[in-house]
Amino acid sequence: MNSFLLFLFKSTLSLSLLYLAFSVLMRKDTFFRLSRLVLLLMVISSVLIPFIPAPQLSQPFVQVKLEPIFQNTTIIEEPIQTNAAPTSIQLSAPASNTNRAISISPKTILLFVYFCGLFISILILLYSITTILLLFQKARKMDQNGLHLRIVSEDTPAFSFGRYILISQFDYDIHSEAIITHEQSHIRLGHFYDLMLMELTKIIFWFNPLVYRMVSDLKEIHEFQADNYTLNQGIDATQYQLLIIQKCVGHQKFALANSFNHC
């Protein structure tokens, strides 16, 4: 119990300090690949740092030699008096257990609160994944140029999940080239695995508000990388910017999914 709480404390402190340093030094940086790598290494380092043994200051070795000292002692014999009056011993019954107050240590309370939050975080993630899988189940399947497309009739923002791209029928008919190219970049750059790591971090450190800022920063970096990739494929920049503005209407974003919605 103590070691686990100590691990959480050290790891949370390490992650918070590293992210604050990142916010000051690199948050406005345009080297998106480097910023992405630093954020991921920060998460991994914060988990490993608590296992690094702390350096101990060496103390000089002092050898102490003990020598016994004997002194002349005199033993005096005294008679034992046996005519003392007998004493009666009364045993009191133990106090009833019902009168004892039940005490719960603060560590137990902290662990209970932590695991409740952990359980709720897992439920939220499972709900998001289940919602995505239900969308995939009722979507029309299509393979195009090695891409696994899932087309739905609802007005759902396009997003990539693993190796799959979900897109609405309207977007597929009107904006398929730009949106599919954008989501394809998320797949090729491996952004899904970044989100897997960050969602696991959110579950373990659900109580740290800086973790949610890290996830937001990482998704923003993903979108910048996807935009650069899309524009480098020959997509018209003006039309692409207008499309982003049209899609920035506050649709729901799913965990573990890179959505075309930038807002």
Rank of each mutant, 00 (worst) to 15 (best):
S92F: 09
L40Q: 04
K28E: 15
L17V: 07
T82Y: 02
P94C: 00
L57E: 12
S46D: 08
L34Q: 13
S16A: 10
E67S: 08
A21L: 12
I89Y: 12
N83G: 00
P53C: 04
R100V: 14
F31V: 02
K28I: 10
I69A: 05
A85W: 05
E67P: 00
P79H: 01
I44G: 10
V43I: 15
N72P: 09
A93G: 06
P79M: 06
S35F: 05
V62P: 08
E77Y: 09
N97E: 13
Q71C: 05
S88R: 08
Q81G: 00
L48T: 07
V24F: 12
L37I: 14
I89F: 15
P79E: 04
R100A: 07
F32V: 07
I52N: 03
S23N: 12
F61S: 08
I89P: 02
A85Y: 07
V47D: 11
T87N: 13
F32A: 02
Q81S: 09
P68E: 02
L66W: 06
Q81T: 04
V62Y: 05
S96A: 14
L39S: 07
E77G: 08
K28L: 15
I52D: 08
T82Q: 01
P68C: 03
Q59I: 10
L17C: 07
P53N: 09
N99T: 15
I52F: 10
P68F: 06
A21T: 12
N72R: 02
V62F: 04
E77A: 01
V43M: 11
T82D: 00
I52A: 00
M26H: 14
P86W: 00
T82A: 00
L40D: 05
N97G: 15
Q81P: 06
V38Q: 02
Q63I: 02
L41P: 02
I76N: 10
Q90G: 06
A54Q: 13
I89W: 11
A84K: 13
T98Q: 14
K28F: 14
P68L: 01
F32M: 06
L39C: 12
L57N: 11
P50I: 07
Q81H: 09
F70D: 02
I75K: 01
V62M: 04
P86H: 03
P79A: 00
F22D: 03
N99I: 15
S96D: 14
R36Y: 00
I49G: 03
P50A: 07
S88H: 03
S45N: 03
Q56P: 03
E67I: 09
A84S: 14
L34A: 14
S58D: 12
A93I: 10
P55W: 12
S46V: 05
F51P: 07
Q90R: 09
I80H: 01
I52K: 10
L57V: 13
A95V: 12
R33V: 14
P68N: 01
S45T: 06
I75E: 06
L48D: 01
S92A: 04
Q56F: 15
P60T: 05
S88V: 04
Q59F: 12
N83K: 04
L41Y: 08
E78L: 05
I80D: 06
L17N: 06
V38S: 11
I49E: 08
R33D: 12
A84M: 11
S88Y: 04
P94D: 06
F61C: 02
